[in-house]
């Protein structure tokens, strides 16, 4: 198999199975009572961490491409980003339904008053234009350069997700700190390329 074939026939199907498998498993678990003592917490943790992992993988595509020379990896980027948005949307929906019982007044108050909610909600909002422009047609219509520039928002979204996680934990911040470290590392890997482009 060529690299392109590996990506199309192996890696992409794996992304689909994992991305759809998480919500299917959670739904099955919720209906069968296998999600532990706090099913909503399990759903929110899996969709939340899943979305963050998806965002970080999206951001890892280009550095990985540079390191390995596998240019075909770029074909994974939009798929990974779309699944990150999909899981983030499920995460938000469980918050709106189970935490806030769809009360607009409570939701507004929570977003305005609590930075961890503000950060999480902002991260999702930032991902909306990215998801809407994720089709091949939209890439063409926007043109590569403008599309690229718009999609730099993904860094802000990922940072919003990390702060959302960091600000919600009571004391043990180990896991959100790890996510933050990966994000910072991915950002640092991009700096040289950006510096070159800025000088040009």
């Amino acid at each position: 198999m060529t690299r392109a074939q590996v990506i199309r026939r192996v890696v992409k199907p794996v992304v689909w199975v994992v991305g759809l498998g998480i919500p299917v498993r959670l739904l099955w678990g919720a209906l069968h009572g296998t999600l532990g003592s706090e099913p909503v917490r399990a759903i929110q943790e899996w969709t939340g961490k899943g979305a963050l992992v998806g965002l970080l993988l999206t951001l890892a595509v280009t550095p990985l491409r540079r390191l390995t020379g596998w240019n075909e990896l770029i074909r994974l980027r939009r798929l990974l980003g779309t699944f990150a948005f999909f899981l983030a949307t499920l995460h938000l929906l469980t918050y709106l339904v189970f935490d806030q019982s769809l009360s607009l007044a409570m939701i507004r108050k929570d977003i305005m008053e609590h930075p961890w909610v503000t950060a999480g909600f902002a991260a999702w909002v930032l991902m909306v234009p990215l998801a809407l422009t994720s089709t091949a047609g939209m890439v063409r219509r926007l043109g590569g350069k403008r599309w690229q520039r718009l999609h730099l928002l993904v860094y802000l979204a990922a940072a919003g997700g990390v702060f959302h996680f960091l600000w919600l934990v009571k004391k043990d911040a180990t896991t959100p700190e790890r996510f933050g470290l990966v994000l910072v590392a991915l950002l640092l890997m991009r700096l040289p390329a950006w510096a070159v482009r800025a000088r040009a």
């Binding site: 003592s37 909503v40 189970f98 019982s101 409570m106 929570d110 008053e113 609590h114 909610v117 919600l168």
Partner: peptide
Amino acid sequence: VDHPRWSQARERPVGEFFK
């Protein structure tokens, strides 16, 4: 009186779906 970072107005009984 909210916790500085989150609301204390509602609670989720462990095992239930809604707060």
